[in-house]
Amino acid sequence: MQDIIAVALITSVSTLTGGALTGAIALWVNRAQLVSSRISADADRREQRTSRHRELRRDAYLHFLDHWGKTEDLLVTLWRQPSPPAEMIASLRSYNEYSEAEKAIYEWRQSMNLVVLEGPEDVGMID
């Protein structure tokens, strides 16, 4: 009878020890996977943030250059025109052309503010 109890005791202890050992190994493996997953997720978030920042910066520069091109075209058109007579200066047509150029300069300056905001500090420096 004592042999049966000893076998039963050894079997139960070895089963419990095996279960505890298996649980400990599973916990260790899951922790390692969790750390790896967290590191990977952090790297993905950093990459997405960097990519989004690059996209915003590119859009700001593109917007700036687009406004600069429009402004330059309007100014070149105005500069190439012969000096109008005094009565034409006061006319609505001449006022509208200068008003368009003024509006284009204003929009260009607004896009410059966006470039300064998005770009590195060196971009906004004026020597």
Rank of each mutant, 00 (worst) to 15 (best):
L114A: 15
Y95G: 03
G69L: 08
A86H: 02
A101D: 05
E87H: 06
K70M: 11
H63N: 13
E107D: 15
Y95D: 06
M88A: 08
N113S: 13
S83F: 02
P82N: 05
I89N: 01
R109N: 10
S83G: 05
K70L: 12
P84A: 03
T71E: 09
E97I: 02
I89M: 07
Y98Q: 07
S94C: 13
G69C: 04
N96I: 10
Y95S: 03
S94A: 13
M112A: 15
E102K: 11
L92W: 01
S94I: 15
S111E: 10
A60I: 06
W79E: 08
R109E: 14
N96R: 15
W79L: 07
R80C: 10
L65R: 10
S91H: 00
Y61P: 04
S91D: 04
S99V: 02
E100S: 10
T71C: 11
L75E: 04
L65Y: 11
H63L: 14
L62E: 15
A104T: 06
W68Q: 12
K103F: 03
A104Y: 02
L114N: 12
Y98T: 03
L92V: 01
W108C: 13
Y95W: 09
I89S: 06
W68F: 10
L62C: 09
M88F: 07
H67F: 12
P84T: 00
R109S: 12
D66E: 14
H67S: 15
K70T: 14
P84I: 01
L62F: 12
Y61Q: 00
W108A: 13
A104E: 03
S91W: 08
K103G: 08
L65P: 05
R109Q: 14
A104S: 15
P82I: 07
R80Y: 03
F64H: 13
Y106H: 07
W79V: 08
V115I: 09
A101V: 05
L78C: 11
A60T: 07
F64W: 14
K103L: 06
W108S: 09
S83P: 04
L78G: 08
E107M: 13
Y106N: 01
E72R: 14
I89F: 05
L65A: 11
E72K: 12
E100V: 02
A90L: 02
A101K: 01
M112S: 11
W68H: 11
L75F: 04
E107N: 14
P84C: 01
L114I: 12
Q110W: 04
K70W: 10
L78D: 11
S91R: 04
L65E: 13
E87C: 00
R109C: 07
A101L: 08
I105F: 00
P84W: 08
E72G: 06
V76R: 12
A86Q: 02
K103R: 14
V115D: 11
L78E: 13
M112G: 09
P84N: 00
L114S: 14
A60M: 09
E87N: 04
W68E: 09
D73R: 09
W108R: 12
N113K: 13
Y95L: 08
A101R: 00
T77S: 15
A90F: 04
Q81N: 00
W79H: 06
N113M: 12
S99W: 07
Q81E: 08
R93P: 03
N113A: 15
A104K: 05
R80P: 01
L62T: 14
Y106M: 00
A86I: 06
T71D: 05
